[in-house]
Design a protein around this nucleic acid. Structure first.
Lengths: 256, 256
DNA sequence: AATTTCGTTCGCCTCTCCAAAACAGCTGTT
DNA sequence: AACAGCTGTTTTGGAGAGGCGAACGAAATT
């Protein structure tokens, strides 16, 4: 991490450990008091107190095998994404787009410098990957993310690109200059490709969602394996469909 | 509330206020420090500290208009529901069921004495109601809930019915004896109806999901307006389809 | 310019909350 | 059966975290 700015440093330690426990349960599944205590580096009684409190509040549930995250987070998460106008505007149109293309589709918004998937439509033959609802991704490694970076305003872009660019595959654009050129291209033609830049074997076509005053709300994409995403289909037809859907969603998001 | 049992009372006050803030943001949307402070009955500096900490952890985001829930909860919620075997087993089958019936479908599990929807499939003509993913409902007022109550073991049923039965519409079964008889009927025929017992104008057909050792995992249902859910279709054909789907999901949940 | 309302910062005092240890319940082992 | 080695729970006391209130600064409204 970077140097802690004392001015913006959070004060409440108890909250930090409580959420630390929550995140640990998220990453490792059901576990008991002792395991939590040693994992978090706190005493057993502390872990017990926190888990007890979280259970009373209804955020963890106590089963025979230990403690686990409750579904209250599902409700909170649903509320969080419903706050985005893009979510309501996108869902039905995305369903149609995915049916037309036959590949998986997703809706992304930016939060804290990362891309977050707020909606995803699977297909019969869809490839199982690591991306779910709520998954966060590096913006420069996805079609949705590059669409976003291309069409956000300059200040935002600078903020989003201030940290170094990770390299996830051999195709990832991890050089800043190259990326900026790529973004220029995307801006000109209106849509973005992803050619195995995040996951080898997967391609995608993305486009930004703009409201009528040209502020960016997020981005959408469809993605599939290189075996199916190729040729004119991938280069011409899919982009056309994605762009069309993006326009409709943008209009719908504006008037709602 | 009932009398606080001191033995199971949560200790960590800071965690309680932090989650109190989270819930308040969930219910009332974006707001600032002062508004949070007065709503929660704490000092401005306290509210500020908590919000600052939550923001640093990434659970609230700070915009121009104030603080709001972040999409990190979406990720936590998704993980929470993925832990249920029923979720993975149900999704594709539910999609098919909903397409066949043409009405909205949902998957429910029980948590803390209430029913929680972990999956929902909408339809073109589907009615918008108050139920989303993560929504909790009184078990005795829904087809899914009654299916669950009918097929869970006796100890569980007793625990789930220990508090009084709310009355949401004139059709709600709020009398314990009547409910137990209804559950007996459901147990015999294998599926449950909901005839405007939660929302006037809405009917539903539900069935339990049982793993092969007859332990109950949850329940599914399809629901629609009384104008379409009627006659033989509602009484015979839809139950047949729901039961069939429930059987398949049960088998799939067992071997996974 | 004056006034209100916002978010942030400061310092003090109190009561929370953390750690260590004792306690209790359960499982399997010798 | 007694024991050992785990669990989760409860109790203690003391340190310091975190709460309040007041003062500050900034921004919006009059």
């Amino acid at each position: 991490m970077t140097t802690n700015d004392p001015a913006t440093e959070g004060q409440i330690g108890a909250t930090k450990t409580s959420f630390g426990i929550v995140e640990h349960l998220r990453n490792h599944g059901t576990m008991g008091v002792s395991e939590v205590a040693s994992a978090l580096g706190v005493s057993k009684s502390t872990a017990h107190n926190h888990l007890q409190t979280l259970a009373e509040l209804g955020y963890v549930i106590q089963t025979d095998e230990g403690y686990d995250l409750s579904l209250k987070f599902l409700d909170l998460g649903d509320h969080a994404r419903r706050r985005h106008a893009l979510y309501h505007a996108a869902i039905s149109e995305m369903d149609d787009l995915v049916e037309a293309v036959g590949e998986r589709g997703q809706v992304m918004v930016e939060e804290n410098g990362r891309g977050v998937y707020i909606y995803q439509v699977k297909t019969e033959q869809g490839v199982q990957t690591d991306s779910h609802i709520g998954t966060t991704v590096d913006l420069h490694t996805t079609a949705v993310g590059k669409s976003y970076l291309a069409f956000c305003d300059d200040d935002t872009r600078e903020r989003l690109l201030e940290n170094s660019l990770s390299e996830l595959t051999s195709n990832t654009i991890s050089d800043r200059e190259t990326l900026l050129e790529e973004l220029e291209t995307i801006r000109e033609r209106g849509y973005a490709f992803n050619d195995e830049e995040r996951i080898t074997g997967m391609r995608a076509v993305g486009a930004p969602i703009l409201s009528d005053d040209d502020t960016i709300l997020g981005a959408i994409s469809v993605s599939g394996p290189t075996t199916r995403m190729k040729g004119e289909w991938y280069r011409r037809e899919v982009p056309e469909m994605v762009m069309q859907a993006a326009r409709i969603i943008g209009i719908r998001a504006t008037y709602s």
